[in-house]
């Protein structure tokens, strides 16, 4: 079915407050309607690499969130987590589509998501860690959403207009993810002895993986020092309210951006990719 352009909003209105985002409604082509020529002066390969690492972060985080389906403590939370996961999946789709055009291969989103091996993925290790308990998942989400929001805020004036548009669209989503996670972290930290214990334990487990988030990358042109300062300040403010402490720990080994992952990623990808690889001709 090619019905890309017949999905207006239910109200029949399509008002673009920021005037930049009027696409992304396509089922087949995430960038339907956008001018995807790479402007002069931009290195396509470098742009593609930047898009892939941002997309990989989102795809793997989305898969972990999806794994809460049928397992979340409450029906309402289950849907909230799935919603957040789907937001991130949408970001991944746009970024993969952008990467495929930027590097000239014309690869689609499926090629990136389903037909690359673990060593070709460029996500940070934080997102591939198992879900653990609910406290771990919301603490990780708080850190991830806060950090990603800072990254994307800075990418809104990146030279590539498509990446800039994807960033400004994603900001509103990430803002909600952050506030959702912050609410839960405060609830758990400021809750019972047990919830406090688990939230602090989750923080202790997340803390060593923060270093990798703030490691400069040659293709991700953002001011890492300011991203670190802002992210740390915002997370600390939430933790203060929650009565939790961000431990000062030694950084765990990074390397996700170079394809060096934990043992958890292959298992995650095996599940994610199994259907597409069993029948590469399948369509959906």
């Amino acid at each position: 079915m090619h019905d890309d352009h017949v999905h207006p909003s239910p109200s029949g209105e399509h008002v673009e407050a920021d005037g930049q985002w009027a696409f992304g409604t396509g089922f087949e082509d995430p960038l339907y309607g956008a001018d995807t020529t790479v402007p002069d002066g931009i290195d396509g390969a470098e742009l593609a690499s930047c898009c892939v690492l941002l997309a990989d972060d989102a795809l793997i985080a989305a898969q972990r969130l999806a794994q809460w389906c049928t397992n979340a403590p409450e029906l309402e939370e289950e849907l909230a987590l799935a919603n957040i996961g789907l937001d991130l999946l949408g970001q991944a789709r746009h970024l993969y589509a952008r990467a495929g055009r930027a590097d000239g291969t014309g690869r689609g989103e499926d090629a990136y998501a389903y037909f690359r091996d673990p060593a070709e993925f460029r996500n940070v290790r934080l997102v591939e860690l198992p879900n653990g308990d609910y406290a771990f998942s919301v603490v990780r989400l708080l850190v991830f959403a806060t950090w990603r929001l800072e990254l994307f805020t800075r990418l809104t004036d990146t030279p590539d207009p498509v990446l800039a548009a994807i960033a400004s669209k994603s900001i509103k989503e990430l803002d909600y993810h952050r506030s959702y996670a912050a609410q839960w972290v405060v609830r758990l930290g400021d809750g019972t002895a047990e919830s406090r214990l688990r939230a602090q334990r989750a923080l202790d487990e997340v803390a060593p993986h923060l270093g990798e988030l703030f490691t400069p990358h040659e293709h991700l042109r953002v001011d890492v020092a300011s991203v670190r300062a802002e992210t740390t300040a915002i997370v600390s403010r939430v933790l203060d309210t929650a009565g939790l402490v961000l431990p000062i720990t030694e950084s765990a080994t990074g390397g996700g951006r170079d394809g060096l992952h934990t043992e958890h990623l292959p298992a995650l990808l095996a599940e994610l990719q199994s259907v597409a690889r069993a029948d590469p001709q399948a369509t959906w």
Binding site: S9, P10, S11, L75, E76, L79, A80, N83, Q183, R187
Partner: peptide, 23 residues
């Protein structure tokens, strides 16, 4: 209707349950 621990959470849940399609 939905379950929530307090008003704030109820609003968050309502946003996620009932306004997913731009309602």
């Amino acid at each position: 209707s939905l379950h929530a621990a307090d008003e704030r959470m109820a609003l968050t849940h309502a946003r996620d349950l009932y306004t997913r399609r731009n309602e």
